[in-house]
């Protein structure tokens, strides 16, 4: 008991390391949010993230080292809508950091103000698989939503670091203008694909597809999070042929056996698309993500590339 007390007193006397630092520490749940936070925060911030772009953000282990990151964060940014519900709550409550708890100035839910898709209206239950009760969480994949995400992050930064107001406002303006210009370019590049039909592995692309006028006629998963049985695959193959679907989209972290099989049997082409910025994987920022996605998709659909 006595040694325990001694330890606690020692801790109380230790100066808080973070309170001396002037840089604002931002921790985001995903690399997409980290990329935007870097653009908005500029030199005033250091940005760290939890889920790497190559990882499926639904299935991250709540490692103690992540908890440590959150304990030292000044600003925490998450996608929300249940995407991180398997791990972020454990990290947040274990982090003992009052600055970043939901409701505190240092907490940012990036979804605020975004027109969400697939918000369930009637009764929701899990016979429908892993449905997200507040709407589909993959909203960062419509590049236009990047503006709202950036705005939410800049507002968060402003709350905890009012001195940086001019810098954040300028960075936000620059980011928004850059994104507006890129949107024109991306919309033009994707124009030939308007009206195309695709099949996606998981229902994770509705924002992206809606943006560019592409329709997902079906999914490899019969229900979100539920692996396909052979009867579903058989139907899917018929449907791909009947509706002239040229492309099957799958994230790199899913088992590629099933989508490969589907592509072989149906004649559609499997396109593996990364859904996130990945600094380790050569996609350095939010702009490069869409450059890469659009480049890959348009190449896959060039006349010589199909069938």
């Amino acid at each position: 008991m006595k040694w325990l007390l001694l330890c606690f007193i020692t801790i109380l006397l230790l100066p808080s390391v973070d309170s001396w630092a002037k840089t604002i520490h931002i921790v985001t749940t995903t690399e997409d949010l980290a990329a935007i936070a870097r653009d908005i925060g500029g030199d005033r911030v250091s940005v760290d993230f939890i889920a790497k772009g190559v990882q499926d953000p639904h299935f991250i282990d709540a490692k103690p080292s992540y908890l440590l990151k959150l304990s030292r964060a000044d600003l925490f940014v998450e996608i929300g809508l249940g995407l991180e519900s398997g791990w972020a709550p454990t990290l947040l409550s274990g982090a003992r950091n009052g600055r970043i708890q939901p409701g505190s100035p240092g907490y940012v839910r990036a979804a605020d103000g975004i027109a969400l898709l697939e918000v369930p209206t009637g009764r929701v239950d899990r016979s429908a698989g892993d449905v997200h009760g507040e709407g589909n969480p993959h909203y960062w994949l419509d590049p236009a939503n990047g503006k709202a995400i950036a705005l939410n992050i800049s507002e968060g930064l402003l709350r905890i670091d009012p001195e940086g107001k001019a810098v954040y406002a300028q960075n936000l303006k620059r980011f928004t203008e850059r994104l507006d210009a890129a949107l024109l370019r991306w919309d033009a590049a994707m124009k030939p694909l308007e009206g195309e039909k695709v099949v996606t592995y998981h229902n994770s692309w509705p924002y992206f597809l809606k943006r560019f006028g592409i329709k997902a006629v079906d999914y490899v998963e019969p229900k979100p999070g539920i692996p396909p049985a052979s009867a579903h695959l058989k139907q899917l193959i018929e449907r791909i042929r009947a509706e002239d679907v040229k492309i099957i989209i799958a994230e790199p972290y899913f088992d590629q056996k099933v989508p490969n099989f589907l592509a072989e049997q149906s004649g559609a082409r499997l396109v593996v698309l990364p859904p996130s910025v990945s600094t380790g994987g050569g996609i350095e920022d939010y702009f490069q993500l869409f450059d890469h996605l659009i480049d890959t998709l348009t190449k896959a659909l060039q006349p010589s590339g199909v069938r």
Binding site: I11, L12, L14, S16, S71, S93, G94, R96, N97, G98, R99, Q101, S104
Partner: peptide, 11 residues
């Protein structure tokens, strides 16, 4: 009940 916001990394 668990505290969320004690200082010094305490809970």
């Amino acid at each position: 009940m668990t505290t969320l916001a004690l200082p010094y990394g305490l809970q």
